[in-house]
Lab assay of single mutants.
Amino acid sequence: MAEIKEKICDYLFNVSDSSALNLAKNIGLTKARDINAVLIDMERQGDVYRQGTTPPIWHLTDK
C-alpha cells in the first residue's frame, strides 16, 4: 500500500489533478476501484483532496 501511495503522490505532483480511473491506469492498475480505498485513506490523512465533480478529481494538498 505504501508503494501505491508513493506512486499516487508522484503522479499527482507531476500532473496536478486526475480522476481515480486515470490515476489508476497511469500507475499500473486497471480500475478506479483498485485505488479508491487508498485515495480515501490519503484524504483522511490530509495528503490529497477531491473536488466534488462526478467523477471526483483528486489533487495533492500543500502539506
Rank of each mutant, 00 (worst) to 15 (best):
M1L: 08
M1I: 15
M1C: 03
M1W: 13
M1D: 07
A2N: 13
A2S: 12
A2G: 13
A2D: 15
E3Y: 08
E3P: 06
E3A: 07
E3L: 03
I4Y: 06
I4M: 09
I4C: 00
K5V: 02
K5F: 05
K5M: 03
K5T: 03
E6Q: 12
E6W: 01
E6D: 04
K7L: 06
K7H: 03
K7M: 12
I8P: 05
I8W: 00
I8C: 00
I8G: 05
C9I: 15
C9K: 15
D10T: 10
D10L: 03
D10S: 13
D10F: 02
Y11C: 09
Y11D: 04
Y11M: 06
Y11I: 10
L12W: 00
L12F: 02
L12Y: 12
L12R: 07
F13Y: 14
F13M: 15
F13E: 15
N14P: 02
N14H: 14
N14C: 10
N14W: 06
V15A: 11
V15L: 03
V15H: 15
V15C: 07
S16C: 09
S16P: 11
S16W: 04
S16K: 15
S16M: 06
D17Y: 14
S18V: 02
S18N: 03
S18T: 06
S18W: 04
S19Y: 04
A20I: 02
A20N: 05
L21K: 13
L21D: 15
L21G: 13
N22S: 08
N22Q: 14
N22E: 14
N22V: 10
N22A: 08
N22K: 06
N22G: 08
L23H: 05
L23R: 03
L23A: 07
L23K: 04
L23M: 07
L23Y: 02
L23S: 06
A24Q: 10
A24G: 04
A24V: 03
A24C: 10
A24H: 04
K25W: 01
K25D: 11
K25A: 10
K25S: 04
K25V: 08
K25I: 03
N26I: 09
N26R: 10
N26G: 13
N26M: 07
I27D: 08
I27L: 13
I27P: 05
I27W: 01
I27F: 08
G28T: 02
G28L: 00
G28N: 05
G28P: 09
L29Q: 12
L29C: 11
L29M: 14
L29D: 13
L29G: 13
L29A: 11
L29N: 13
T30P: 10
K31H: 15
K31Q: 14
K31D: 15
A32L: 15
A32W: 08
A32T: 12
A32Y: 12
A32R: 05
R33Q: 14
R33S: 15
R33D: 15
R33G: 15
R33Y: 14
D34T: 02
D34F: 01
D34I: 06
D34S: 06
D34H: 03
D34L: 05
D34E: 14
I35G: 03
I35E: 00
I35Y: 01
N36F: 05
N36D: 14
N36I: 05
A37V: 01
A37L: 06
A37G: 07
A37R: 12
A37M: 06
A37E: 12
A37Y: 05
V38I: 13
V38D: 09
V38R: 04
L39V: 03
L39P: 06
L39N: 06
L39C: 04
L39D: 11
I40C: 10
I40V: 12
I40S: 14
D41M: 04
D41I: 00
M42S: 03
M42G: 05
E43R: 00
E43F: 01
E43V: 00
E43D: 02
R44A: 14
R44V: 07
R44K: 13
R44G: 07
Q45S: 13
Q45F: 02
Q45E: 13
Q45N: 13
G46M: 04
G46P: 01
G46C: 00
G46E: 02
D47N: 08
D47R: 13
D47C: 11
V48G: 02
Y49D: 08
Y49I: 13
Y49M: 13
Y49Q: 13
R50G: 05
R50I: 01
Q51I: 14
Q51K: 13
Q51T: 15
Q51H: 11
G52Q: 10
G52T: 02
G52F: 00
T53S: 10
T54Y: 06
T54N: 15
T54D: 15
P55C: 07
P55E: 12
P56E: 09
P56D: 05
P56Q: 04
P56H: 00
I57P: 05
I57E: 09
I57D: 10
W58F: 09
W58N: 08
H59P: 04
H59V: 08
H59D: 07
H59T: 12
H59C: 14
L60N: 06
L60H: 03
L60K: 04
L60G: 05
D62Y: 05
D62C: 10
D62K: 13
K63Q: 01
K63T: 08
K63A: 12
K63Y: 02
